[in-house]
Amino acid sequence: MLRNAMQPWHLIVLLVVCLLVFGSKKLPEMARGLGKSMRILKAETRALRTEEEQPPRPDRHPEAP
């Protein structure tokens, strides 16, 4: 049923609708914002992965007298 769900003409129609709704001045700004968000998400997931791989550190607080 959904074998050929996304065809090239679907993307073209979607781009035309986005252009009509948001206008040509807003689309590059939105794409830039989406790119920045994706970079931040990628960096955060990478940091979480490296955090999981490292063994937990012992507590470094000095002992109280």
Rank of each mutant, 00 (worst) to 15 (best):
P28Q: 03
W9T: 11
L15D: 05
G35M: 01
M38S: 08
A64F: 13
I40L: 12
C18P: 00
L34V: 04
E63K: 08
V21W: 12
A31H: 01
D59G: 02
N4H: 12
S37I: 03
R39E: 10
K36D: 03
M38T: 08
K26L: 04
L15R: 06
D59H: 05
Q54T: 01
E44D: 13
W9C: 02
K25S: 15
L15N: 02
V17T: 13
P56N: 07
E52S: 04
E51R: 15
L19F: 07
H10V: 13
L20D: 07
G35E: 00
P56H: 06
L34S: 03
N4K: 07
M1K: 06
R49E: 12
L34W: 12
V21L: 15
G33K: 12
L20V: 07
M30S: 03
A5D: 09
W9H: 14
E51H: 15
M1E: 12
G35Q: 01
E52A: 13
A43F: 02
M6D: 10
E44T: 11
L34N: 02
E51W: 13
G23D: 10
E53D: 09
K25C: 04
A47R: 07
P62V: 03
L27Q: 06
P56Y: 03
L15S: 01
E53S: 10
S24Y: 14
E44R: 12
Q7D: 06
E29S: 05
P65G: 06
R46Q: 14
L34P: 00
E53N: 06
I40Y: 09
N4Y: 12
L2I: 06
K36M: 04
